[in-house]
Design a protein around this nucleic acid. Structure first.
Length: 596
DNA sequence: AGCACAACTTAGAATTTGAACA
DNA sequence: TGTTCAAATTCTAAGTTGTGCT
């Protein structure tokens, strides 16, 4: 592993034969190769070569359809009807989702019914003409019972099979490492669940077969075998890409891939590189900002638009915003695809001048709502861009992501729109940590500060979540606990007081000791109470904010690692096991004085 | 320039796990 | 020893970016 040079320098001094080692990043190094080389140097490939050797077992297919037992019935118009296996399978997809809001949506129902009918026999087609007359409840209950039964299964039973499959299919050999594969299971068939108002929701996602699969591996590897009696669509040996398996999905016609886990060398290096690019932006961001401010005054409309868009991307951490094909996906936008209807201009609002109100649906149909004061020049430009336009016209009609990224490329090597999100997220975390952490606080309080810094970033990047269904209840539970702890504390304090009084009268060793014990108890309870209160604050502030996405994708992990080292916080408090695996390179690399 | 397509990152929801609690 | 709920993990949709063609 690129970051494991320390470990390897020890390794190379070992005898050559039969050296097995597990590098601390979890990959099983082929130690022999390393030693024969007599030094550890991962080859740095050039011209887009991603690997030299790649061997894997291929994908795990979805289990075949198991017809329902005959006592689980489907009713049409109140009458029992036995469905053909093909029609039955698609019906079960709908039945499984009966409790979900999707099944009440008109588009979902329409798309489902259309695709379902395609799977029906002629007789079924003739008979089943109205989805409203279909009764799937027995099927639905059957599946609920099934999942209950699964829950009741012992842990061993559940894990045994899984573990076997994981060991066989979950790893590959890429160059000198045994690496974990991310998604080695093929997506099972089902009904498409688009986000937001997706025109294709409810369509049938068909079952993927071996003849749909393209395998990618190295020529000199042991090729994966297709299941008996089947063939792969193709086996290729393209070492300029990182995927192992691909297939084309039938809803949008896009390609799906099986790739490596984030803990792998290939993903880790890319991630590291991403943060290095963002750090390079840090060095020249002042110049770039000065430049776009200058461009607000340009004679050319396209340059002004570009400059205002870039200002938004920088200041508000908006996404680039590619155009999308109408009717193929939900209507969502990013910066370059903003329409006139998505912003409102207020020359004055709540005592502030030149306020822009944003209200649009972004990625995953998450609403972006924000009112921001902007500079006068920006405001005037926006007025100009909106002149004589309809609400559904593009705000930046002379701009798209490709034009913008070409311009950015000229400003800095490797600069694209999304680098601004990475840069602003990471720099915000670093600043916030500096501001919020106070040396005299205990560990839980410091962690609250960390979470608050993380939260500032999540808010900047608009990472939202639906408030958990059980939120109110869980807050109440926590409050109950806090109240109980308060009572406990006052009891303990009372006991301490009486112990003190007792000690004053008796003046013996035993009662002195009792005072000490009580004092300790009070302290301990105070600490516990404080911890609970901090937890409550943290949870309340987090109600609609998702911290995970920024933590995983935008925050240079070295900032967090350095912070942990500086304040003596165990990294485990900040990163769970998976995250530590993903960020192993950073945990190894960063010292307490790391600066983004 | 404008496109289609390929490859890869980023995203929130759904499901599973496991720890805390009764 | 079962129950409950939050945390962890899995899943896969939805973005961005780059390339090559017309």
């Amino acid at each position: 592993h690129p970051a494991s040079s320390k470990l390897v320098s020890r390794l190379v001094s070992l005898p050559l034969r039969n050296v097995t080692f597990i590098c601390k990043y979890g990959c099983f190094g082929l130690a022999k190769l390393c030693c024969v080389d007599s030094r550890w140097e991962e080859e740095r490939y050039t011209d887009g070569v991603k690997w030299k050797f790649l061997e894997h077992k291929g994908p795990v297919f979805a289990p075949p359809y198991e017809p329902l037992p005959s006592n689980v019935k489907f009713y049409y118009d109140g009458k029992h009807m036995k469905l053909s296996p093909e029609a039955e399978e698609v019906a079960t997809f709908f039945a499984k989702m009966l409790d979900h809001e999707y099944t009440t949506k008109e588009i979902f129902r329409k798309n489902f019914f259309k695709d379902w009918r395609k799977e029906m026999t002629a007789e079924e087609k003739a008979k089943i003409t109205d989805l409203k007359k279909c009764n799937f409840t027995e099927m639905n209950e059957y599946f609920k019972a099934q999942s209950e039964a699964r829950k009741a299964m012992s842990k061993e039973q559940k894990q045994e099979d899984n573990e076997r499959i994981l060991q066989e299919y979950g790893f590959c050999i890429m160059d000198n490492h045994r690496e974990r594969i991310a998604n080695f299971r093929i997506e099972p068939p089902g009904l498409f669940r688009g986000r937001g108002d997706h025109p294709k929701m409810g369509m049938l996602k068909r079952r993927i077969r071996p003849q749909d699969i393209i395998i990618n591996c190295s020529k000199d590897s042991k090729h994966p075998e297709p299941p008996p009696g089947t063939r792969w669509k193709e086996v290729r040996h393209d070492n300029k890409v990182t995927w192992l398996v691909s297939w084309t999905e039938n809803i949008q016609g896009s390609i799906k891939y099986i790739m490596l886990n984030p803990s792998s060398r290939i993903k880790g290096e890319k991630d590291w590189q991403k943060y290095e690019t963002a750090r390079r932006l840090k060095k020249c961001v002042d110049r770039i900002r000065a430049q776009y401010r200058e461009d607000w005054k340009s004679k050319e409309m396209r340059i002004r638009q570009r400059a205002v868009a870039l200002y938004f991307i920088d200041k508000l951490a908006l996404r680039a915003g590619n155009e999308k094909e109408e009717g193929e996906t939900a209507d969502t936008v990013g910066c370059c695809s903003l329409r006139v209807e998505h912003i409102k201009l207020y020359p004055e609002n709540d005592g502030q001048e030149y306020v822009v109100e944003f209200d649009f649906l972004g990625k995953d149909s998450i609403r972006y709502y924000n009112k921001v004061p902007v500079e006068k020049r920006v405001f005037k430009n926006l007025q100009l861009f909106m002149e004589n336009k309809e609400p559904d016209d593009d705000l930046f009609d002379r701009l798209n992501t490709s034009v913008l990224n070409k311009h950015l490329q000229e400003l800095m090597d490797g600069l694209t729109a999304k680098v601004f999100r990475t840069y602003n997220a990471s720099i915000t975390l670093q600043q916030q940590l500096k501001e919020l952490t106070s040396a005299d606080e205990n560990i839980p309080a410091k962690i609250l500060s960390y979470n608050r810094a993380n939260r500032a970033v999540a808010i900047l990047c608009n990472h939202q979540r639906a408030p958990p269904k059980t939120f109110e209840k869980s807050m109440q539970n926590l409050q109950t606990k806090i109240d109980a702890k308060r009572d406990q504390l006052s009891d303990a304090k009372r006991e301490l007081k009486s112990a003190k009084a007792d000690a004053k009268i008796r003046r013996d060793e035993k009662s002195k000791k009792a005072v000490e014990t009580k004092k300790k108890a009070v302290q301990r309870i105070e600490e516990q109470l404080m911890k609970l209160e901090v937890q409550a604050t943290d949870r309340e502030e987090n109600k609609q904010i998702a911290l995970g996405t920024s933590k995983l994708n935008y925050l240079d992990p070295r900032i967090s690692v350095a912070w942990c080292k500086k304040w003596g916080i165990p990294v485990e408090k900040i990163y769970n096991k998976t995250q530590r695996e993903k960020f192993a390179w950073a945990i190894d690399m960063a010292d307490d004085d790391y600066e983004f």
